[in-house]
Design a protein around this nucleic acid. Structure first.
Lengths: 149, 149
DNA sequence: AAATTATAGTTGCAAATACAATCATTGTAT
DNA sequence: ATACAATGATTGTATTTGCAACTATAATTT
């Protein structure tokens, strides 16, 4: 981690924040326009779909999606209401609960993907070349790893 | 914008989201621990402090901070309640309102800065080297510029 | 084994957000 | 000048978040 002589990185954080805010707003707008739910729903559904047996413990899911426990509880409530997810009690640890994607949940995720991925491409990926993508990925990965200490 | 052969950038967006969520959570936690307000408050106060005559029109401020008009109205309500900001009607356009940082607002920003900047350094900047910072900055700048079209 | 502490998840309530509707003023067209 | 649309900001209301308190089960200590 070399010391910066140029003051480049003084401006990176604000830029990072702004880009995040703008892109999230635009992506949400596109999803909403298409009559689809927010992209957190996508993240949750996709996390579950990738998991073995279509399910994750609430706490695992909370960690993966970087949501607080209580917020995840409520989010899963809404997903359950919409029939996209079901809850299942854990037999091993009877305090525990699983969230499980339903067939309908998988369908929804599949329906969201084209809109979501198109938005990501058009707003983000298309403007970043290969080298930059690699650079970004490794930098962000390192930042993320550093937070787990 | 070269086409990606490697599938690096497929993972950049999720990583970007995760890093944002984790860092924001950690930074907010530090500010809150120190008995200080959220960092949006910082952003608003700083935007005003940099502006000529310590003031900005509500709509300019909303755009700079990437907040919706109505949310900014409420945020400025809270800042005003805390004595950090005042409102001033515009004489030129009598629909318009300015938000103006007060002395107390500047003090607060100054008090937040050490905590906030330390957090940014420790959690973000220290893990990014010079080249990466430059790369990140130019990529994010390009992404941001592209959204304004 | 009883008591104590820790963990998983949910709930209550206050605060913040999103979105549409509204109010006041300004700009434009007739 | 009068009417009509556009702009700047706020408000109403429903939804979502954040935090602390709570319930139920599990793990640890004595």
């Amino acid at each position: 981690m070399s010391k910066s002589v140029l003051k480049t990185d003084a401006s990176v954080w604000p830029l990072f924040l702004t880009v995040h805010a703008v892109l999230v707003a635009k992506i949400e707008a596109r999803l909403s326009e298409a009559g689809l739910p927010q992209f957190v729903w996508y993240d949750v559904l996709w996390a579950l779909e990738r998991a073995p047996d279509d399910r994750l413990r609430m706490s695992e899911l909370a960690e993966m999606t970087v949501l607080s426990r209580s917020n995840l509880t409520r989010l899963v409530d809404r997903l359950e209401c919409a029939g996209l997810v079901e809850r299942a009690r854990s037999e091993a640890d009877r305090r525990g609960a699983f969230a499980v994607v339903t067939r309908k949940g998988k369908e929804m995720r599949r329906k969201m993907w084209p809109i979501y991925s198109k938005a990501i491409k058009e707003l983000f990926e298309n403007h970043i070349d290969n080298d930059e993508a690699a650079c970004l990925a490794s930098a962000l990965r390192r930042v993320l790893d550093a937070t787990r200490e």
